[in-house]
């Protein structure tokens, strides 16, 4: 499926969009990290929690954790909050 990449992570993908596969969000992110080493740890911490300023949406709905089921063709959007100022 398609994964939309925020600008702060495009140093890894060189693109606003990436292709990744998996039946859960965790599997999708592991596949993304296989292609772009290091990207997963920037958005998921070592306790397997989505980092504080990161939100991930599947088909427009915010997900709470990595166990979220993903279907083929789902749209996954990684959003980096531009908080502060």
């Amino acid at each position: 499926m398609k994964v939309l990449i925020p600008s702060a992570l495009r140093s890894y993908t060189q693109s606003s969009q990436a292709e990744a596969s998996g039946s859960t969000l965790n599997e999708v992110l592991v596949d993304l990290d296989r292609q772009y080493p290091g990207i997963r740890f920037r958005i998921i911490d070592e306790q397997q929690q989505i980092r504080r300023h990161i939100r991930i949406f599947v088909n427009g709905v915010s997900v709470n954790g990595l166990a979220q089921t993903i279907q083929p063709g789902d749209d996954v959007v990684i959003v980096q909050a531009l908080s502060g100022g």
Partner: peptide, 29 residues
């Protein structure tokens, strides 16, 4: 960055190019 997780970059040519650590410091799960 203010919003992304931490990492370590390494250069072996005085900063002309940088490579990211394959496994940055992280606590045990």
């Amino acid at each position: 960055t203010g919003h992304l997780g931490p990492t370590i970059f390494r250069s072996t040519n005085w900063g002309r190019t940088w490579q990211e650590a394959a496994q940055p410091p992280a606590f045990a799960k």
